[in-house]
Design a protein around this nucleic acid. Sequence first.
DNA 1: ATGTAC
Length: 357
Amino acid sequence: MSQQSARATVRVFANPGSWIESDALVQCDQVAALDGMIRVAGMPDLHPGKGAPIGAAMLSSVLYPFLVGSDIGCGIAVFPIRIKRPNLERIAGRFPDLDRALTPDAPEWPDDIPAGHTDSLATVGRGNHFVELARIDSVLQPTGLAKGDLVLIVHSGSRGLGESILRAHTEVHGAGPAADPGAYLRAHDDAVRWGSLNRRLMAARVGRALGAEVGAPVVDECHNLVEVRDGLYLHRKGAARGDSREVLVAGTRGTPSYLVAAHAGAEANWSVAHGAGRKMSRSDALRRGKAKHTVAELRRTKVGSLVVCGDRQLLFEEAPTAYKRIEQVIGDLEAHGLATPVAVTVPLVTYKTRGQR
DNA sequence: ATGTAC
């Protein structure tokens, strides 16, 4: 039935010294064997995901919804924010409740909500998602930001909307291709717009709660989506658009993040990493973290930042030591000519969740 | 990563 064709290429853009979990490489090979697959590019933050690798851009003539996963539209946005004399304790205490959905009486309530999906609007979600007040620690290359400027970094996606889109497909077709790519893409595009709106609404909520002026985003890059390029489908799963633009590559809740000028070409599927990448599974991070860290040191980090996280389990799962070193990921991007560092941000206050769960 | 069930 399936015709014989040249197998897709797999290339991982990491230096030999950068450890990549072997399960993630196996997943890349499995993806490469899919019908229609042309080129799999693993980013230096590559790690195993649920059925498909995270930190990968996968170019194919066939559209596979499972390669993007449930959080369609997830991305990272950076907003300039002005606060006169930031008091971290006070800011942490005044952060809005981003676990609770926006209500229509809020001043931020938008006129146009993609897919009419109002559930969980302007909420951050869980997992690796966060909203962070950060300071520009150094500027390495001319850009619109200056040393000392404050920014709000928002990493979040489409919450239940993307999940429902993937589920609708999976219930009928499992890990198979989209039977009607156009229909999938129309729903998908709504989720991508919803994710971007979600990040803007959260920034606005934080600005209002802190009495701070929030500017238009200087970066807003989605790293989970399907991009149609020359009639082919480029599946991004934790891989940001990397062709001639600035992207924020997130560190961890307690280490710096990097704004980079991305200039990735076809061989890297026009992509760059989206973050530090997990070094261990959530269960390992919880087990090892409990032996290694106290809750107090995870809530007040080595760089002096505060982490608002009422959920102790999530705090351990998201510990900086559960992730690769961001400097190594950035070094790998540089070494392969995919990106050049532009500015370094250091966290001041990171919001994860108020709740206990 | 998610909403929901356990």
